[in-house]
Simulated assay, not measured.
Amino acid sequence: MWSRIFGLSDAEPAPAGLLEHLQQSGLSVRGQFRGDDLGWTAAELSVGTGTPVYLERYLVKEDNLREDLNVWAGILETCDYSPFAQVLMEKVIQSKQMITLRKPIDHNNESQLEDLLDWTCRWLAQATEGIYQVDGAGWFDANGMRLIEEY
């Protein structure tokens, strides 16, 4: 399962800030970040044992993501049953960065893993002035309020 954060800001979310937030939320999480001169581009977040959560950070301008964003905007365009579809579509189109999270399938503590994913998505959405989408769950604002449910 994948989660995607669509950030309106191009500011790099601080790795130390994310780890501090997760630890203050009660998770004993370890993180490894790697990147380049534009900031971190990939990370692994580990809590408990099992495969870590993998994150990838893409900058729209540098990584040529315009076509990908147009696809996501097109998906939102089909959600005309929601009063939030238009606003979310505009935010996706205006995104300056996208961060993906991949949920591992072999974690020994599903509840802990769900907390890690939820709190990471919320923090990253807030840090990038964005929104997020979770496969099979829907579209959310930075506070975790579901705006569109996926069916």
Rank of each mutant, 00 (worst) to 15 (best):
W2P: 01
W2C: 00
S3W: 14
S3F: 11
R4C: 09
R4N: 05
R4Y: 09
R4T: 14
L8H: 02
D10H: 13
A11W: 13
A16W: 11
L19V: 09
L19S: 02
L22R: 12
Q24C: 09
G35K: 15
D37I: 11
L38N: 10
G39M: 13
W40C: 07
A43M: 05
E44F: 07
E44Y: 04
E44W: 03
L45C: 07
S46T: 13
S46N: 06
V47T: 05
V47C: 06
G48P: 09
G48Q: 12
P52L: 09
P52A: 04
R57G: 00
R57M: 04
V60T: 13
K61N: 10
N64H: 14
L65F: 13
L65S: 05
L65K: 15
R66W: 01
D68S: 06
L69H: 14
N70D: 15
W72D: 05
A73N: 03
L76G: 05
E77H: 11
C79I: 00
D80W: 11
Y81M: 00
P83R: 15
F84G: 00
Q86T: 04
L88E: 01
E90D: 14
V92D: 00
I93D: 01
I93T: 10
Q94R: 14
Q94A: 11
Q94I: 00
Q94K: 14
S95A: 15
S95E: 01
M98W: 08
L101A: 08
N109F: 02
S111I: 07
S111Q: 13
L113E: 06
E114N: 15
E114H: 12
E114M: 09
L116T: 01
L116C: 01
L117S: 02
L117G: 04
T120S: 15
R122E: 08
R122A: 03
L124G: 02
L124V: 05
A125Y: 03
Q126R: 15
T128W: 10
V134P: 01
D135P: 11
G138M: 08
A142H: 11
N143T: 04
G144K: 15
G144C: 03
R146K: 08
L147C: 02
L147G: 03
I148G: 07
E149N: 00
